[in-house]
Design a protein around this nucleic acid. Sequence first.
DNA 1: CGTCCCATGTAAAAGGTTACATGATTTC
DNA 2: GAAATCATGTAACCTTTTACATGGGACG
Lengths: 185, 185
Amino acid sequence: MNILSYGLLGLLTRDESSGYDLMLRIQPHWPAKHSQIYPLLSRMEEDELLSSRWIEQTDKPDKKMYKITDKGIQVLLEWMYTPVSTSPIRDELSLRLICFQITNPALLRQWIEERRQWYQIRQDYYEDLLKALPDEAVQPTHSYFGDYIVNTKAAMKAKAGMEWCDWVSDLIRSGHAEQKVSNSH
Amino acid sequence: MNILSYGLLGLLTRDESSGYDLMLRIQPHWPAKHSQIYPLLSRMEEDELLSSRWIEQTDKPDKKMYKITDKGIQVLLEWMYTPVSTSPIRDELSLRLICFQITNPALLRQWIEERRQWYQIRQDYYEDLLKALPDEAVQPTHSYFGDYIVNTKAAMKAKAGMEWCDWVSDLIRSGHAEQKVSNSH
DNA sequence: CGTCCCATGTAAAAGGTTACATGATTTC
DNA sequence: GAAATCATGTAACCTTTTACATGGGACG
């Protein structure tokens, strides 16, 4: 049982879902391909954390709907009371920046511009997800409160990324800077 | 040749380094264990991107110092002109939050508190790295400008994370909220 | 006396990506 | 006619983590 498996179990506490649908639902929080998800679901069914049934469809391919079992809920609950891990952050851009001097300043400007666009797309994406939530999700007792704060986190992180890009752009435009305090942008 | 390999090559454009030292130097930007780095360095030496020599030490174990070759610089430069990838973001906390309702509110408060502390430690860490840089690193022409902006990025991200934690804490303290606009905290 | 830092390596296992494989329906 | 969406699965490969393996010096 890895983190992704628990995440899938968690999604299944809300709705009965197909593997394909679970892939789409978990993507915003934990990118995973179908080739990784289908075997995990099979294994969890073997371990009796999930049960499944085939739904026949006429216009679309048939699908296998998964449901969490009592044992599944128990296993999920046990996980919830274990320490939360923090994932390592790996950004190729960082590795390029620390040696970008061997190239030219235009390349730096291009990277920052591209990255800013990427952050913008991400911010828009998560704000769309927020808009799709019911208004009552802002209340801590609401069942979608978790989605509300998680999507807000992603949007805030993207915004911080954009601010960093703008800060770098200003720095390279002016060619110099007064201070090197990180939170004085 | 994976991203980590290029990152190691990049660090070696600055100084001749041992594998152990490269591990310590790359950790802030790309977490990697020695067991991953040593084989990559060996392979790059085989491919003649690096050369090495043993340095005998009396008080510490002997070490193998790596130097980048002309071929290595060429390969690194080619990589610099390829598209920059963006790493997927995976956070266990997000997966827990979207189904935390099956537990209790105290657990949520605990997770946010712990996460805030973690962000604080990260911010302090990257600000210490910034303080260790020479003052002139703020200038885009300086050889440490890359480190300056990369460490600032990490510090800003950590700060954004803390702001999110505080925002969530406020939400759960007040028990309700007026708006659900992400950038109105 | 135990733990941390230095320093190098290998092996096995787990996690994740890319490619292979199939196939109907819808949309441009 | 091409591409995207829905829908499931397997196999090969690459990346990363954990564990095995060794050993001296410093510090408390």
